[in-house]
Amino acid sequence: MSTPPERPPGAVVHADPWAELRRHTPARIALGRAGASLPTAEVLGFGLAHAQARDAVQTPLDVPRLLAALAASHWPALALASRAPDRPTYLLRPDLGRQLDPADLPLLTGAARGPCDVALVLADGLSALAVQAHAVPLLDALRGLLDPAWRIAPVCVVRQGRVAIGDDIGAALRARVVAVLIGERPGLSSPDSLGVYVTYAPRVGRSDAERNCISNVRPAGLPLADGARKLAWHLREALRLQLTGVGLKDESDIAALPAVGPPGTALEGERRD
């Protein structure tokens, strides 16, 4: 008894006999081969995915639409900008994307009602698509998990922003902890992935080793409800232990949550925004 050959007579592509495993992973496994090389269909499919990811980087954040969605969910919000005026500058000058446009500072301090416990920042990062689609649903899922005693600052929506702009904003709002929800750089299979960075005692000059990250929040990755629970866990632990970063290990799954959490290291935090 023998199974049929994986390459029928005349076929030019050898198929891999483990294609059933594709149900376990979005990774590009069992692609088959032509000689040692990728089959034509895979080369062209990869090219299309790359084109879509490239386009996702360039698509701007629709701020009015995002503000409308926040208003509809009863989140007080304000719109801010970084010092990077456009996408090309944003890509080449991460330092500008980390700083709040000084013109927006009065708006921010005017919105502050004294010190607060938690500041929430939504920034386009490298995928406005991610923020546009998932940020408000994530906040809505978070709402019921927040300690009612916490003072929450108005949600800050930032154009051309990077992770560290949360330090500027959190300091101006006198927040004890800041969470930045930001579009991660698009992958071939994930143009809409949201990253969440939590920083205790935000102030200019915080290093990425002082942050925790919850990555890949999107329906096909870490579901939004789980992302919200992880975020709530990190906010609670950050305020309890008075730290974030390498000193705060994600044990939220021990508290009966799915086993997905932050990479924790600075390198990835910096490189993903």
Binding site: A36, F46, A49, G187, R272
Partner: peptide
């Protein structure tokens, strides 16, 4: 990396096929 597409780190590296090449 399977198909050169790292589905966790969101970048393109080299594939098993690339090594064979």
């Amino acid at each position: 990396v399977p198909g050169a597409d790292d589905v966790m780190l969101n970048y393109q590296s080299t594939s098993f096929h690339d090594a064979l090449y």
